[in-house]
Amino acid sequence: MSRASVGRYRWLSGTSFGLLLADLICNSLFLLFYHDTLITLLIYIIQDVCLVFSLILFFLALFSTSLSQAGLVGELVHKFQWCIIVAVMYLGLSLGFHSWSLEQQWQKPKVYIWAPGMVALFTVQRVVGGVHYYLYKRAILQLSNKEFYAKKLLLVASNIKETLIQIAQKTEPIVTSLAFLMLHLTFYGNLALKIWIQDLAEKNNIN
């Protein structure tokens, strides 16, 4: 890994872990200010912004690797698919819980309301949040592996090789069909030539 890559990775990983810590703090603080709608709204906004930026930084970390620059984006997405899926799920659950709880607070600001559905959504959001923390931290640490910053020429060559193999696999049925057609044309052409020669010989015998 080059010095530029090391510096970029340190900045991305440090900022990503800071956003995770901010999200964890917001999850812990909102219950203390649940009766204050404005403070709760501010905490929710900070938390949602942290989640969006953490997802953006993760994709920046993916696209800064040599694999993505060589065109192997599908390989990266497949390798970190669960991290991406859980991060999107956690963001969606957080937005849903924040919207529902704020709606309940604005309707009855002085009443501490926890409907059964809200309790279930809160529980699922917290469980998915724990899984998100684990997968996200593991993915950021995995991106420090040297295999993601290998020499670009080798990766480009590998990418070209795989592309040629895919093209060959896709065009193989077409080539086979053309060869089969040429074989049939040759067979029927020879048969027609033999019939023409026989007719010509029969005409000569008659004459």
Rank of each mutant, 00 (worst) to 15 (best):
T171L: 14
T176W: 10
H184N: 13
L164C: 12
H184Q: 04
P173T: 01
A157S: 07
A168M: 05
M182V: 15
A157R: 06
T163G: 12
A157K: 14
I174C: 10
S177D: 10
S177R: 07
L185R: 13
L153I: 14
H184W: 11
V156F: 00
K170G: 15
T171F: 15
L181F: 06
E147L: 07
T176H: 11
L181N: 08
S177I: 04
A179E: 15
K161D: 02
I160K: 04
L178H: 05
Q169I: 03
I160E: 07
I167Q: 11
P173I: 01
A150G: 03
Q169D: 09
I160S: 03
V156Q: 00
L183S: 10
L181G: 07
T171V: 06
F180Y: 14
A168C: 01
I160N: 03
N159A: 01
Y149R: 03
K170Y: 13
I174V: 12
K170V: 10
Y149I: 02
A150E: 01
E172G: 14
F180L: 03
Q166T: 13
T163C: 10
E172A: 14
L178Q: 05
K152H: 06
A157H: 11
H184D: 08
A179Y: 12
V156I: 02
P173R: 09
I167P: 05
K152D: 03
T163V: 12
